[in-house]
Write a protein that binds this DNA or RNA. Sequence first.
DNA 1: TCATGACCAAATAGATCATTTGGTCATGAA
DNA 2: TTCATGACCAAATGATCTATTTGGTCATGA
Lengths: 243, 243
Amino acid sequence: MTRLDHPATATGDAERDRRAERILDTASELLVAWGYRRVTIEEVARRSGVGKGTVYLHFHTKEVLFLTAVMRAQSVMTERLLQDMRADPARILPSSIARSIYLRIHEEPIIRAILTGDTDTLGTLSRTAPDHVGDLLEARERTLDTYFEVLREHDLVRTSPPVHLQRHALSAVLTGYLVIGPLTPYSTPDTETAADMLAHTVRSSFETGHHEDRLNEAVPRIIGLFQGLLERMNEEISRQKLT
Amino acid sequence: MTRLDHPATATGDAERDRRAERILDTASELLVAWGYRRVTIEEVARRSGVGKGTVYLHFHTKEVLFLTAVMRAQSVMTERLLQDMRADPARILPSSIARSIYLRIHEEPIIRAILTGDTDTLGTLSRTAPDHVGDLLEARERTLDTYFEVLREHDLVRTSPPVHLQRHALSAVLTGYLVIGPLTPYSTPDTETAADMLAHTVRSSFETGHHEDRLNEAVPRIIGLFQGLLERMNEEISRQKLT
DNA sequence: TCATGACCAAATAGATCATTTGGTCATGAA
DNA sequence: TTCATGACCAAATGATCTATTTGGTCATGA
């Protein structure tokens, strides 16, 4: 429970930022464990080793605090996707991305809650999110559209359906695999197997046989695209962290 | 409001059965409009033009009444699928079935509620269903497994993944398309378009290029299969209708 | 300068009471 | 005798009021 002997004034931006991160850590942890409604700011403050008022020096409201926690989780996931892409060009393909997201979600319950619209843990957050970070959500949509356009230009995905339909289809399939588990009372395959099936589904319904060359050509653009989204997210996150 | 001048004792099984159907009609209607929790047996009785006690002459409990209503809706849907299959062999393919189910669900809110696990309209039904009709649910799983096996024997679907994984994948994709609509706050394509995308997804990830002959060979077996399931459902339905 | 916890209004949870509802069964019509 | 019915009951649900908690502020003091 006891933190620093001297909970002294945070000297410098560095210390201050570390404290903000600690608060976000606590918020994330409690969000998953208790659900938005049941977590109090005071508890977050206590577990973060700061006073209650201090939390409000970092985040406008409870809502903003938890939304930021959620955004940070997504930012981290995007960063991982980027790492993967840099290591292996094939990782830019939708099937690989879907697979990674699916697997990651099984160890990051926050993101699962977002994507599946889990109202118990998210509470009213799911309603109010668009009011606070609507721009970001739109940006994500646009990024995905451009993503498919780029893939298309390099003959890596089918060209038959319009781009926005492909995006919709990808969301639908991914969501389906995520939601089906808790929904059906009966036998579900283990995570790894399901992830492979998901990748198979996405691959066969979106992608073409890939040419190694065309793939490599596309990599920088795709990476740039997601890098842009990542920066947009981080920007939004630090915008929420006050002063 | 007024029904027969003579709400007389139901003479013969025919009249009695008509009355049961009327009660099921009312129950279905109110289930969709109000949700399980808010519907009272008395209201169902009033709207069906019978006394409250009479409802209990037909169905053991409130739960059983509404479960039967739900089963009947599924039975009707299965019947339609069978009609389609008889009219056109290609309708036995998973892509076509998925498409039909998806479209039908947009005009049959009951079934949507089931498949998407809509807890607001279904209430506690979703939890308790397996206790009452667990056998039927298992039968449906087995039927789907056999369905894929038959398709496989006629070279109509891929043979790479195990059958039960294919079933799981089909459920996942269909569920995804169903759930994604209410979930995402943003642009969704219109029903018909989404249905086509769904069919495309299912076709490209499960089916092979179909030989007309092989298709026709499979038709009778597939139809028999679903016919069996249909009978199993109707059997369960009439088992619930008392005496 | 800046972290803090007492403080306030508003929301939530608890407790108590009134109403409704699922399910039964004695009654009476046919 | 057969069978539909609505009064009836215990249990669940909802309404209402009170006590507590909680999000958010700000005077205080390190």
